[in-house]
Design a protein around this nucleic acid. Structure first.
Length: 487
DNA sequence: ATAAGCACGC
DNA sequence: GACGTACGTGCTTATA
């Protein structure tokens, strides 16, 4: 599965699919043994042993045959080293994290939960009073009809691709001044999200025998090389809003003698752009330990660092993130709520300020055109078969991937390497502390207090020195009695 | 069961 | 004239 993930990161990797694609053979479907998915599906333990052994042996046989083929392919594509030195060693590290889990104190949320429910009920009433009718606020379809047919708050409402009225945050945010109902709807949505996705869902996932939440980390989903997390997804726990952050108080150390430690890379993707693009000024900004958004604002506005205003920094920050994603003048203008002309000016100034970055992007796109793929720092590949498409939407998408994939993917390579090194170091030191979560540029640990000072050093070292770049990699460390305090 | 629309993270 | 920022997961509603 992982071998195929490296070879074709944006395809599927399940055994049936691989067998059909590479061995031209359809394995015995699991449904033949346990019936169709649903409530009547039987348990594996009920299956006749003869049938079961055939099925199990076939599984092993196919896996082995696939490996013979995929091994040669990895070699041919120069991916064997990535496979052997990163992905395979990472596998038991992730297994350990899943097995260990994170303690979740649902009682920490009792008060928050009841406040949330009360707030939702009262906002719900206010919204329905303003609308003058009872309806389901959570239904975008009904909501759109209320706002644009009944209340007629604007003339030409934006529609979705299925011709429904769009009620996305983006759209509603711009309508706040048109009617007092809008802000209440946005508030309702965010509170409802917190309640249903997190406050009510997370306690159900506490394992009764460990008292912890054991998320799954998927190693073969994200086409850039990132991990993903499911059941629950612990990589999207809220942090930006005050109420959202409250949730993090429920993620706690495993015992009295334990404390949380969070270690996150500072601006790892922008540092990678500096490194990969070799842009002199971008590199200098990081070597001088400047605030990269202030440094960027100073350069694109052609002023000195001290004259950078808050607004200039915000624009530069958005531009910096836009650059990572291969943004257009249109996209930036939407983001900053400015005209396209002004946005284009910012982008032009950006590329004049950082000519190396411009060259790097152009080179990556032409590399993708020539070779059909782009690569990360550790040789992870992403094939971009649409890069020469005549359809400009499809082609533009591939071009943005050509820019983003090496950056996002290299960051994934680096933190994976750090995780492997940290795990080895924990083992050789005999630490009982555990690495329990990864959130793309952040690692979270359940630390046995007597080990705290040693572990701070180990973690910082492993992360900052995972790889040598032309700019320093820096890591911020925090500790506390829950995830919020540690971050 | 699946798609659409939405919202949360990095 | 349409389109417009990368990568994910999961909830609710609507529909098949």
């Amino acid at each position: 599965m992982i071998a195929h993930y490296l070879l074709e990161p944006d395809q599927r990797h399940n055994l049936t699919y691989l067998s059909e694609s590479y061995l031209n053979y359809t394995p015995v479907p699991i449904e033949d043994l346990i019936g169709k998915r649903g409530k009547n599906q039987r348990n594996m333990t009920d299956v006749d042993l003869g049938l079961l052994s055939n099925y199990a042996c076939e599984d092993a046989d196919i896996t082995f045959r696939l490996w013979n083929y995929l091994k040669a392919q990895l070699e041919k594509e120069d991916l064997l080293k990535l496979f052997n030195t990163i992905e395979m060693p990472l596998l038991p590290v992730l297994a350990n994290m899943e097995n260990c889990g994170v303690r979740f104190d649902e009682h920490a949320l009792t008060e928050f939960s009841s406040n949330l429910k009360n707030d939702i009920i009262s906002i719900e009433k206010e919204i329905k009073d303003l609308a003058g009718i009872d309806f389901n606020i959570s239904s975008p379809k009904q909501l759109g009809e209320i706002l644009f047919d009944r209340l007629k708050i604007i003339d030409k409402p934006k529609k979705t691709k299925t011709k429904q009225y769009s009620t996305s945050e983006d759209v509603l945010d711009k309508l706040r001044s048109k009617h007092e109902i809008i802000s209440k709807i946005l508030e309702f949505r965010s509170l409802k999200k917190l309640l249903s996705t997190y406050v009510e869902a997370l306690p159900k996932l506490i394992n009764v025998s460990t008292g912890k939440i054991h998320s799954s980390f998927n190693q073969s989903i994200a086409s850039t090389g990132r991990l993903s997390s499911t059941n629950p997804n612990l990589q999207n726990i809220p942090i930006r809003t005050a109420k959202g952050r409250e949730l993090r108080k429920a993620f706690v150390p495993s015992g009295e003698e334990y404390i949380f430690l969070s270690a996150d890379y500072s601006q790892v993707e922008l540092r990678l752009i500096a490194h990969l693009s070799n842009d002199e000024d971008f590199i200098k900004a990081f070597i001088n330990n400047e605030d990269i958004h202030i440094a960027t604002a100073a350069r694109i506005n052609n002023v000195n660092l001290k004259s950078v205003t808050r607004e200039m920094r915000t624009q530069a920050k958005t531009a910096n993130f836009g650059i990572i994603y291969g943004i257009s003048a249109f996209g930036l203008s939407q983001r900053l709520n400015i005209s396209r002309k002004e946005a284009k000016q910012i982008i032009d100034n950006y590329f004049i300020s950082y000519p190396g970055v411009k060259d790097y992007m152009d080179n990556n796109i032409s590399l993708a055109r020539d070779k059909g793929y782009v690569m990360t720092i550790m040789g992870r590949k992403r094939y971009l078969r649409d890069i020469n498409s005549r359809n400009h939407i499809v082609r533009s998408n591939a071009e943005r991937n050509a820019i983003n994939a090496p950056v996002q993917g290299s960051a994934a390579d680096i933190i994976k390497l750090a995780m492997i090194n940290i795990s080895e170091s924990f083992q050789s030191s005999g630490f009982v502390s555990k690495m329990i979560l990864q959130v793309h540029d952040e690692l979270i640990f359940d630390i046995y207090k007597p080990e705290l000072e040693s572990i701070k050093i180990v973690v910082k070292n492993c992360m900052e020195n995972a790889i040598k770049l032309k700019v320093p990699l820096t890591v911020d460390i925090g500790t506390g009695n829950n995830w919020l305090e540690a971050h």
